[in-house]
Nucleic acid binder design. Structure first.
Lengths: 243, 243
DNA sequence: GCCGATTTGTCCGTATGTATC
DNA sequence: CGATACATACGGACAAATCGG
Protein backbone atom coordinates (compact mmCIF):
# COMPACT_ATOMS: atom_id res chain seq x y z
CA UNK A 1 0.00 0.00 0.00
CA UNK A 2 2.72 2.53 0.83
CA UNK A 3 4.09 3.74 -2.48
CA UNK A 4 7.43 4.89 -1.12
CA UNK A 5 9.97 2.14 -0.97
CA UNK A 6 11.57 3.25 2.27
CA UNK A 7 8.15 3.37 3.87
CA UNK A 8 7.43 -0.20 2.82
CA UNK A 9 10.73 -1.39 4.26
CA UNK A 10 10.16 0.63 7.43
CA UNK A 11 6.73 -0.93 7.96
CA UNK A 12 8.01 -4.39 7.10
CA UNK A 13 10.85 -4.22 9.61
CA UNK A 14 8.53 -2.72 12.21
CA UNK A 15 6.05 -5.56 11.78
CA UNK A 16 8.78 -8.13 12.10
CA UNK A 17 10.05 -6.52 15.29
CA UNK A 18 6.56 -6.38 16.76
CA UNK A 19 6.02 -10.03 15.81
CA UNK A 20 9.23 -10.96 17.58
CA UNK A 21 10.96 -12.08 14.40
CA UNK A 22 13.74 -9.76 15.45
CA UNK A 23 13.70 -10.03 19.23
CA UNK A 24 14.63 -7.65 22.00
CA UNK A 25 18.39 -7.02 22.17
CA UNK A 26 19.04 -8.86 18.91
CA UNK A 27 20.77 -7.23 15.94
CA UNK A 28 19.05 -6.51 12.67
CA UNK A 29 20.69 -7.89 9.54
CA UNK A 30 23.43 -5.54 8.38
CA UNK A 31 22.74 -2.81 5.87
CA UNK A 32 24.45 -4.75 3.11
CA UNK A 33 22.31 -7.75 3.90
CA UNK A 34 19.11 -5.71 3.90
CA UNK A 35 20.10 -4.19 0.56
CA UNK A 36 20.09 -7.67 -0.95
CA UNK A 37 16.89 -8.66 0.84
CA UNK A 38 14.90 -5.69 -0.37
CA UNK A 39 16.75 -5.01 -3.59
CA UNK A 40 17.36 -1.35 -3.03
CA UNK A 41 20.10 1.16 -2.37
CA UNK A 42 21.82 1.80 0.91
CA UNK A 43 20.20 5.19 1.33
CA UNK A 44 16.76 3.64 1.24
CA UNK A 45 17.65 1.10 3.92
CA UNK A 46 19.16 3.80 6.09
CA UNK A 47 16.04 5.90 5.81
CA UNK A 48 13.86 3.04 6.96
CA UNK A 49 16.15 2.25 9.87
CA UNK A 50 16.31 5.92 10.77
CA UNK A 51 12.53 5.98 11.12
CA UNK A 52 12.71 2.97 13.43
CA UNK A 53 15.26 4.83 15.55
CA UNK A 54 13.01 7.83 16.03
CA UNK A 55 10.18 5.45 16.95
CA UNK A 56 12.36 3.93 19.63
CA UNK A 57 12.34 0.48 18.04
CA UNK A 58 16.06 0.13 17.40
CA UNK A 59 19.35 1.76 18.18
CA UNK A 60 22.26 1.97 15.75
CA UNK A 61 25.80 1.27 16.89
CA UNK A 62 28.62 2.27 14.61
CA UNK A 63 30.85 -0.66 13.80
CA UNK A 64 28.56 -3.10 15.56
CA UNK A 65 25.10 -3.17 14.12
CA UNK A 66 21.52 -2.18 14.83
CA UNK A 67 20.07 -3.38 18.12
CA UNK A 68 16.38 -3.99 18.70
CA UNK A 69 15.23 -2.24 21.87
CA UNK A 70 11.53 -2.88 21.51
CA UNK A 71 9.89 -5.11 24.09
CA UNK A 72 6.45 -6.34 23.05
CA UNK A 73 5.41 -6.91 26.67
CA UNK A 74 6.29 -3.38 27.77
CA UNK A 75 4.19 -1.78 25.08
CA UNK A 76 0.94 -0.28 26.09
CA UNK A 77 -1.60 1.18 23.81
CA UNK A 78 -3.09 4.66 23.75
CA UNK A 79 -1.22 7.79 22.91
CA UNK A 80 2.15 7.01 21.39
CA UNK A 81 3.11 10.50 20.43
CA UNK A 82 2.59 11.45 16.84
CA UNK A 83 -0.66 13.04 15.80
CA UNK A 84 -3.69 10.86 16.15
CA UNK A 85 -7.31 11.76 16.47
CA UNK A 86 -9.42 10.57 19.36
CA UNK A 87 -11.44 8.39 17.01
CA UNK A 88 -8.35 6.80 15.50
CA UNK A 89 -6.85 5.89 18.83
CA UNK A 90 -10.16 4.56 20.12
CA UNK A 91 -10.55 2.33 17.08
CA UNK A 92 -6.99 1.12 17.34
CA UNK A 93 -7.65 0.00 20.88
CA UNK A 94 -10.97 -1.62 20.09
CA UNK A 95 -12.89 0.62 22.40
CA UNK A 96 -16.24 2.25 21.93
CA UNK A 97 -16.09 5.98 21.65
CA UNK A 98 -18.52 8.82 21.42
CA UNK A 99 -18.18 12.54 21.08
CA UNK A 100 -20.70 15.07 22.31
CA UNK A 101 -20.66 18.73 21.36
CA UNK A 102 -21.66 20.72 24.41
CA UNK A 103 -20.98 24.16 23.02
CA UNK A 104 -20.75 25.59 19.53
CA UNK A 105 -20.16 29.20 18.54
CA UNK A 106 -18.55 31.50 16.02
CA UNK A 107 -16.39 34.27 17.33
CA UNK A 108 -13.77 36.85 16.51
CA UNK A 109 -10.46 36.64 18.32
CA UNK A 110 -9.90 39.47 20.76
CA UNK A 111 -6.60 40.28 22.45
CA UNK A 112 -7.08 37.69 25.14
CA UNK A 113 -8.03 34.84 22.83
CA UNK A 114 -5.28 35.79 20.39
CA UNK A 115 -2.69 35.59 23.11
CA UNK A 116 -3.98 32.32 24.43
CA UNK A 117 -4.39 30.56 21.08
CA UNK A 118 -1.73 32.13 18.90
CA UNK A 119 -4.24 33.29 16.28
CA UNK A 120 -4.05 36.85 15.04
CA UNK A 121 -6.38 39.39 16.58
CA UNK A 122 -9.65 39.60 14.64
CA UNK A 123 -9.30 36.11 13.22
CA UNK A 124 -12.68 34.55 12.45
CA UNK A 125 -12.98 31.36 14.45
CA UNK A 126 -15.24 28.50 15.37
CA UNK A 127 -15.20 27.59 19.03
CA UNK A 128 -16.38 24.19 20.22
CA UNK A 129 -16.46 22.41 23.49
CA UNK A 130 -16.50 18.68 22.96
CA UNK A 131 -16.73 15.83 25.40
CA UNK A 132 -15.07 12.54 24.48
CA UNK A 133 -16.32 9.26 25.88
CA UNK A 134 -14.41 6.01 25.87
CA UNK A 135 -16.42 2.96 26.86
CA UNK A 136 -19.10 5.31 28.15
CA UNK A 137 -16.80 7.23 30.48
CA UNK A 138 -16.27 10.92 29.94
CA UNK A 139 -12.50 11.19 29.75
CA UNK A 140 -11.58 14.28 27.78
CA UNK A 141 -13.00 17.74 27.53
CA UNK A 142 -11.78 19.59 24.45
CA UNK A 143 -11.83 23.29 23.75
CA UNK A 144 -11.35 23.60 19.99
CA UNK A 145 -10.69 26.75 18.01
CA UNK A 146 -10.68 26.49 14.22
CA UNK A 147 -9.76 29.15 11.70
CA UNK A 148 -12.77 29.73 9.43
CA UNK A 149 -10.56 30.52 6.44
CA UNK A 150 -9.26 26.96 6.48
CA UNK A 151 -12.20 25.10 8.01
CA UNK A 152 -15.36 26.63 6.58
CA UNK A 153 -18.90 25.36 7.16
CA UNK A 154 -18.18 23.62 10.42
CA UNK A 155 -21.32 22.40 12.18
CA UNK A 156 -22.11 20.72 15.49
CA UNK A 157 -22.99 17.60 13.49
CA UNK A 158 -19.49 17.42 12.05
CA UNK A 159 -18.15 18.01 15.54
CA UNK A 160 -20.03 14.98 16.81
CA UNK A 161 -18.23 12.85 14.29
CA UNK A 162 -14.55 13.29 13.54
CA UNK A 163 -13.45 16.76 12.58
CA UNK A 164 -10.20 15.33 11.31
CA UNK A 165 -12.09 13.10 8.88
CA UNK A 166 -13.96 16.16 7.66
CA UNK A 167 -10.69 18.00 7.22
CA UNK A 168 -8.87 15.27 5.40
CA UNK A 169 -11.60 13.63 3.34
CA UNK A 170 -13.92 16.52 2.54
CA UNK A 171 -11.79 19.64 2.71
CA UNK A 172 -8.56 17.86 1.81
CA UNK A 173 -6.71 19.77 4.47
CA UNK A 174 -3.68 17.76 5.48
CA UNK A 175 -2.30 18.09 8.95
CA UNK A 176 1.43 18.30 9.07
CA UNK A 177 2.82 19.69 12.29
CA UNK A 178 1.45 19.96 15.77
CA UNK A 179 3.14 21.74 18.65
CA UNK A 180 2.01 20.54 22.01
CA UNK A 181 2.52 21.62 25.59
CA UNK A 182 1.50 19.45 28.48
CA UNK A 183 0.81 20.91 31.89
CA UNK A 184 -1.25 20.19 34.99
CA UNK A 185 -4.03 22.52 36.05
CA UNK A 186 -6.53 22.79 38.81
CA UNK A 187 -9.98 21.72 37.78
CA UNK A 188 -12.58 24.29 36.84
CA UNK A 189 -16.31 24.19 37.35
CA UNK A 190 -16.80 23.08 33.76
CA UNK A 191 -14.35 20.23 34.23
CA UNK A 192 -16.12 19.17 37.38
CA UNK A 193 -19.50 19.28 35.72
CA UNK A 194 -18.63 17.07 32.78
CA UNK A 195 -15.73 14.84 33.79
CA UNK A 196 -15.88 12.34 36.62
CA UNK A 197 -12.75 13.36 38.46
CA UNK A 198 -13.24 11.32 41.60
CA UNK A 199 -11.15 12.87 44.35
CA UNK A 200 -8.56 14.37 42.03
CA UNK A 201 -8.55 18.15 42.14
CA UNK A 202 -6.50 18.68 38.98
CA UNK A 203 -6.15 17.34 35.47
CA UNK A 204 -3.77 16.95 32.55
CA UNK A 205 -3.97 19.73 30.00
CA UNK A 206 -2.58 19.37 26.50
CA UNK A 207 -2.51 22.58 24.50
CA UNK A 208 -1.76 22.18 20.82
CA UNK A 209 -1.35 24.30 17.74
CA UNK A 210 -1.90 22.49 14.45
CA UNK A 211 -0.57 23.54 11.05
CA UNK A 212 -1.83 22.54 7.62
CA UNK A 213 0.26 21.81 4.55
CA UNK A 214 0.57 25.50 3.73
CA UNK A 215 2.20 26.14 7.09
CA UNK A 216 -0.86 27.96 8.36
CA UNK A 217 -1.91 27.40 11.94
CA UNK A 218 -5.59 26.59 11.67
CA UNK A 219 -6.37 24.90 14.97
CA UNK A 220 -5.78 25.57 18.61
CA UNK A 221 -7.03 22.95 21.01
CA UNK A 222 -6.89 22.63 24.72
CA UNK A 223 -7.50 19.04 25.81
CA UNK A 224 -8.39 18.49 29.43
CA UNK A 225 -7.86 14.89 30.49
CA UNK A 226 -9.20 12.93 33.41
CA UNK A 227 -5.95 12.26 35.26
CA UNK A 228 -6.29 8.55 35.89
CA UNK A 229 -6.72 7.86 32.18
CA UNK A 230 -4.03 10.19 30.97
CA UNK A 231 -0.88 8.66 29.59
CA UNK A 232 1.62 10.07 27.17
CA UNK A 233 4.48 8.13 25.64
CA UNK A 234 7.55 9.58 24.09
CA UNK A 235 10.91 8.49 22.76
CA UNK A 236 13.81 10.85 23.01
CA UNK A 237 17.12 10.38 21.25
CA UNK A 238 20.22 12.27 22.20
CA UNK A 239 21.71 14.61 19.61
CA UNK A 240 22.09 13.25 16.12
CA UNK A 241 19.30 10.70 15.81
CA UNK A 242 20.55 10.34 12.27
CA UNK A 243 18.07 13.06 11.36
CA UNK B 1 32.60 22.93 16.88
CA UNK B 2 30.33 20.43 15.19
CA UNK B 3 32.45 18.40 12.83
CA UNK B 4 29.60 17.15 10.68
CA UNK B 5 28.74 19.50 7.86
CA UNK B 6 25.00 18.95 8.02
CA UNK B 7 25.10 19.69 11.74
CA UNK B 8 26.87 22.98 11.13
CA UNK B 9 24.28 23.98 8.53
CA UNK B 10 21.45 22.85 10.80
CA UNK B 11 22.74 24.96 13.68
CA UNK B 12 23.42 27.92 11.42
CA UNK B 13 19.91 27.92 9.98
CA UNK B 14 18.44 27.40 13.42
CA UNK B 15 20.32 30.39 14.80
CA UNK B 16 19.18 32.55 11.93
CA UNK B 17 15.58 31.54 12.49
CA UNK B 18 15.81 32.24 16.19
CA UNK B 19 17.40 35.61 15.44
CA UNK B 20 14.53 36.45 13.12
CA UNK B 21 16.72 36.57 10.04
CA UNK B 22 14.22 34.16 8.55
CA UNK B 23 10.94 35.29 10.06
CA UNK B 24 7.74 33.49 10.94
CA UNK B 25 5.83 32.37 7.83
CA UNK B 26 8.68 33.30 5.48
CA UNK B 27 10.30 30.81 3.13
CA UNK B 28 13.85 29.63 3.47
CA UNK B 29 16.08 30.02 0.42
CA UNK B 30 15.55 27.10 -1.96
CA UNK B 31 17.71 23.99 -1.73
CA UNK B 32 19.65 25.01 -4.81
CA UNK B 33 20.33 28.38 -3.29
CA UNK B 34 21.47 26.87 0.01
CA UNK B 35 23.77 24.50 -1.88
CA UNK B 36 25.60 27.51 -3.28
CA UNK B 37 25.59 29.32 0.04
CA UNK B 38 27.11 26.47 1.97
CA UNK B 39 29.04 24.81 -0.82
CA UNK B 40 27.75 21.31 -0.29
CA UNK B 41 25.57 18.65 -1.85
CA UNK B 42 21.81 18.59 -1.88
CA UNK B 43 21.68 15.65 0.50
CA UNK B 44 23.55 17.59 3.12
CA UNK B 45 21.15 20.51 2.87
CA UNK B 46 18.17 18.20 3.03
CA UNK B 47 19.49 16.55 6.17
CA UNK B 48 19.89 19.89 7.91
CA UNK B 49 16.40 20.98 6.90
CA UNK B 50 15.02 17.63 7.97
CA UNK B 51 16.38 18.20 11.45
CA UNK B 52 14.68 21.59 11.57
CA UNK B 53 11.42 19.91 10.61
CA UNK B 54 11.58 17.47 13.48
CA UNK B 55 12.36 20.37 15.79
CA UNK B 56 9.22 22.13 14.64
CA UNK B 57 11.12 25.09 13.21
CA UNK B 58 10.08 24.74 9.58
CA UNK B 59 7.68 22.87 7.37
CA UNK B 60 8.49 21.68 3.86
CA UNK B 61 6.00 22.09 1.02
CA UNK B 62 6.63 20.18 -2.16
CA UNK B 63 6.75 22.51 -5.14
CA UNK B 64 6.60 25.60 -2.97
CA UNK B 65 9.42 25.82 -0.51
CA UNK B 66 10.22 25.57 3.18
CA UNK B 67 8.16 27.70 5.52
CA UNK B 68 9.37 28.93 8.87
CA UNK B 69 6.82 28.15 11.59
CA UNK B 70 8.88 29.25 14.56
CA UNK B 71 7.65 32.21 16.55
CA UNK B 72 10.28 33.67 18.88
CA UNK B 73 7.63 35.17 21.15
CA UNK B 74 5.78 31.90 21.63
CA UNK B 75 8.85 30.04 22.75
CA UNK B 76 9.18 29.28 26.38
CA UNK B 77 12.11 27.68 28.01
CA UNK B 78 12.35 24.54 30.11
CA UNK B 79 11.86 21.04 28.86
CA UNK B 80 11.75 20.96 25.08
CA UNK B 81 11.69 17.24 24.71
CA UNK B 82 14.95 15.61 23.93
CA UNK B 83 17.10 14.32 26.72
CA UNK B 84 18.42 16.91 29.05
CA UNK B 85 19.62 16.65 32.60
CA UNK B 86 18.18 18.74 35.38
CA UNK B 87 21.46 20.62 35.69
CA UNK B 88 21.63 21.37 31.97
CA UNK B 89 18.15 22.78 31.81
CA UNK B 90 18.66 24.82 34.96
CA UNK B 91 21.83 26.33 33.55
CA UNK B 92 20.19 27.06 30.23
CA UNK B 93 17.50 29.03 32.01
CA UNK B 94 19.94 30.88 34.25
CA UNK B 95 18.44 29.52 37.41
CA UNK B 96 20.14 28.32 40.54
CA UNK B 97 19.80 24.64 41.15
CA UNK B 98 20.69 22.21 43.86
CA UNK B 99 20.32 18.50 44.27
CA UNK B 100 20.00 16.69 47.57
CA UNK B 101 20.31 12.94 47.98
CA UNK B 102 17.76 11.85 50.58
CA UNK B 103 18.22 8.12 50.19
CA UNK B 104 21.00 5.94 48.88
CA UNK B 105 21.10 2.15 48.78
CA UNK B 106 22.28 -0.86 46.86
CA UNK B 107 19.78 -3.54 46.15
CA UNK B 108 18.97 -6.60 44.09
CA UNK B 109 15.92 -6.47 41.85
CA UNK B 110 13.11 -8.71 43.02
CA UNK B 111 10.04 -9.59 40.97
CA UNK B 112 8.24 -6.42 41.91
CA UNK B 113 11.08 -4.06 41.14
CA UNK B 114 11.88 -5.91 37.94
CA UNK B 115 8.35 -5.50 36.73
CA UNK B 116 8.22 -1.85 37.66
CA UNK B 117 11.58 -0.85 36.23
CA UNK B 118 12.11 -3.24 33.34
CA UNK B 119 15.39 -4.57 34.75
CA UNK B 120 15.89 -8.33 34.89
CA UNK B 121 15.22 -10.10 38.17
CA UNK B 122 18.38 -10.26 40.30
CA UNK B 123 19.97 -7.27 38.61
CA UNK B 124 22.37 -5.47 40.92
CA UNK B 125 21.19 -1.89 41.28
CA UNK B 126 21.80 1.41 42.98
CA UNK B 127 18.68 3.09 44.25
CA UNK B 128 18.64 6.81 45.01
CA UNK B 129 16.02 9.27 46.01
CA UNK B 130 17.02 12.76 44.96
CA UNK B 131 15.39 16.07 45.51
CA UNK B 132 15.92 18.82 42.92
CA UNK B 133 15.72 22.46 43.85
CA UNK B 134 15.32 25.32 41.42
CA UNK B 135 15.78 28.79 42.90
CA UNK B 136 15.51 27.20 46.35
CA UNK B 137 12.16 25.56 45.71
CA UNK B 138 11.87 21.77 45.86
CA UNK B 139 10.30 20.94 42.51
CA UNK B 140 11.20 17.40 41.59
CA UNK B 141 11.57 14.19 43.54
CA UNK B 142 13.47 11.55 41.62
CA UNK B 143 13.60 7.83 42.23
CA UNK B 144 16.67 6.60 40.34
CA UNK B 145 17.67 3.02 39.67
CA UNK B 146 21.06 2.41 38.02
CA UNK B 147 22.49 -0.85 36.79
CA UNK B 148 25.76 -1.49 38.64
CA UNK B 149 27.29 -3.25 35.65
CA UNK B 150 27.18 0.01 33.69
CA UNK B 151 27.40 2.56 36.49
CA UNK B 152 29.85 1.21 39.06
CA UNK B 153 31.15 3.07 42.11
CA UNK B 154 28.19 5.39 42.42
CA UNK B 155 28.21 7.41 45.62
CA UNK B 156 25.88 9.89 47.31
CA UNK B 157 28.48 12.56 46.53
CA UNK B 158 28.20 11.91 42.83
CA UNK B 159 24.44 11.94 43.21
CA UNK B 160 24.59 15.42 44.69
CA UNK B 161 26.30 16.63 41.58
CA UNK B 162 25.24 15.53 38.11
CA UNK B 163 25.12 11.79 37.55
CA UNK B 164 24.98 12.42 33.83
CA UNK B 165 28.28 14.28 33.98
CA UNK B 166 29.78 11.33 35.84
CA UNK B 167 28.44 8.99 33.19
CA UNK B 168 29.63 10.95 30.20
CA UNK B 169 32.89 12.45 31.39
CA UNK B 170 34.23 9.81 33.77
CA UNK B 171 32.69 6.54 32.69
CA UNK B 172 32.29 7.57 29.05
CA UNK B 173 28.84 6.09 28.95
CA UNK B 174 26.88 7.82 26.23
CA UNK B 175 23.14 8.09 26.52
CA UNK B 176 21.33 7.41 23.31
CA UNK B 177 17.68 6.60 23.75
CA UNK B 178 15.18 7.32 26.46
CA UNK B 179 11.63 6.03 26.56
CA UNK B 180 9.33 8.11 28.66
CA UNK B 181 5.81 7.81 29.92
CA UNK B 182 4.00 10.71 31.50
CA UNK B 183 1.10 10.17 33.83
CA UNK B 184 -0.62 11.84 36.75
CA UNK B 185 -0.65 10.24 40.16
CA UNK B 186 -2.02 10.96 43.58
CA UNK B 187 0.58 12.25 45.94
CA UNK B 188 2.20 9.93 48.46
CA UNK B 189 3.42 10.67 51.96
CA UNK B 190 6.97 11.01 50.67
CA UNK B 191 5.88 13.52 48.04
CA UNK B 192 4.04 15.51 50.64
CA UNK B 193 7.00 15.50 52.96
CA UNK B 194 9.53 16.85 50.50
CA UNK B 195 7.65 18.81 47.85
CA UNK B 196 5.57 21.87 48.56
CA UNK B 197 2.41 20.86 46.80
CA UNK B 198 0.13 23.62 48.04
CA UNK B 199 -3.44 22.45 47.64
CA UNK B 200 -2.74 20.11 44.76
CA UNK B 201 -3.39 16.51 45.64
CA UNK B 202 -1.61 14.96 42.68
CA UNK B 203 1.54 15.40 40.64
CA UNK B 204 3.11 14.78 37.26
CA UNK B 205 5.06 11.56 37.01
CA UNK B 206 7.58 10.90 34.27
CA UNK B 207 8.88 7.34 34.14
CA UNK B 208 11.83 6.79 31.88
CA UNK B 209 14.09 3.98 30.75
CA UNK B 210 17.47 5.06 29.45
CA UNK B 211 19.72 3.09 27.13
CA UNK B 212 23.45 3.44 26.61
CA UNK B 213 25.31 3.18 23.32
CA UNK B 214 25.38 -0.60 23.56
CA UNK B 215 21.61 -0.70 23.63
CA UNK B 216 21.60 -1.75 27.28
CA UNK B 217 19.01 -0.23 29.56
CA UNK B 218 21.01 1.02 32.52
CA UNK B 219 18.68 3.50 34.19
CA UNK B 220 15.11 3.59 35.30
CA UNK B 221 13.92 6.83 36.79
CA UNK B 222 10.63 7.98 38.11
CA UNK B 223 10.43 11.76 38.27
CA UNK B 224 7.71 13.24 40.42
CA UNK B 225 7.06 16.89 39.57
CA UNK B 226 5.35 19.62 41.47
CA UNK B 227 2.35 20.22 39.20
CA UNK B 228 2.48 23.99 38.91
CA UNK B 229 6.05 23.87 37.62
CA UNK B 230 5.60 20.98 35.28
CA UNK B 231 5.65 21.66 31.59
CA UNK B 232 6.46 19.42 28.69
CA UNK B 233 6.83 20.54 25.09
CA UNK B 234 6.62 18.34 22.06
CA UNK B 235 6.46 18.62 18.29
CA UNK B 236 4.62 15.99 16.36
CA UNK B 237 4.75 15.56 12.60
CA UNK B 238 2.23 13.52 10.70
CA UNK B 239 3.59 10.45 8.93
CA UNK B 240 6.56 10.93 6.70
CA UNK B 241 8.46 13.71 8.42
CA UNK B 242 11.14 13.06 5.87
CA UNK B 243 12.55 10.52 8.29
C1' DG C 1 -5.77 24.31 -20.02
C1' DC C 2 -1.10 23.58 -21.39
C1' DC C 3 3.82 24.18 -20.93
C1' DG C 4 8.08 25.16 -18.91
C1' DA C 5 10.63 26.65 -14.84
C1' DT C 6 11.13 26.04 -10.03
C1' DT C 7 11.10 23.41 -5.81
C1' DT C 8 10.76 19.54 -2.94
C1' DG C 9 10.49 14.11 -2.77
C1' DT C 10 12.40 9.60 -3.86
C1' DC C 11 16.01 6.65 -5.30
C1' DC C 12 20.34 5.11 -7.00
C1' DG C 13 25.53 4.52 -7.04
C1' DT C 14 29.95 5.62 -5.20
C1' DA C 15 33.68 7.18 -2.25
C1' DT C 16 35.66 7.92 2.15
C1' DG C 17 35.78 8.10 7.26
C1' DT C 18 35.26 5.93 11.78
C1' DA C 19 34.32 2.33 15.09
C1' DT C 20 34.29 -2.53 16.21
C1' DC C 21 35.92 -7.08 16.18
C1' DC D 1 46.11 -5.73 10.38
C1' DG D 2 42.06 -6.78 7.60
C1' DA D 3 37.12 -7.43 7.42
C1' DT D 4 32.76 -5.74 8.75
C1' DA D 5 29.40 -2.27 10.00
C1' DC D 6 27.54 2.18 10.41
C1' DA D 7 28.32 7.55 9.34
C1' DT D 8 29.06 11.28 6.24
C1' DA D 9 29.18 13.32 1.83
C1' DC D 10 28.93 13.87 -3.14
C1' DG D 11 26.67 13.59 -7.64
C1' DG D 12 23.06 12.43 -10.71
C1' DA D 13 18.37 10.98 -12.34
C1' DC D 14 13.54 11.15 -12.34
C1' DA D 15 8.93 12.03 -10.10
C1' DA D 16 5.46 15.10 -8.13
C1' DA D 17 3.63 19.49 -6.84
C1' DT D 18 3.37 24.40 -7.64
C1' DC D 19 3.34 28.65 -10.10
C1' DG D 20 3.46 31.97 -13.83
C1' DG D 21 2.93 33.03 -18.62
Amino acid sequence: MPKAKYDFIYKDLKNKIEAGEYGFQELLPSENHLILTYGCSRNTIRRAVSALVTDGYVQTMQGKGVRVIFEPTQQTSFTLGGIESFKESALRNHQTYKTKVIYFAELTADEKIAKKTGFAVNSQLYYLQRLHYLDNRALILNHNYFLKDVVPFLTPEIGENSIYEYLENILHVSIVTSKRIMTIEKMTQIDEKYLELGDYNCLAVVSSQTYNSDGIMFEYTQSRHRPDYFRFQDNATRRPALH
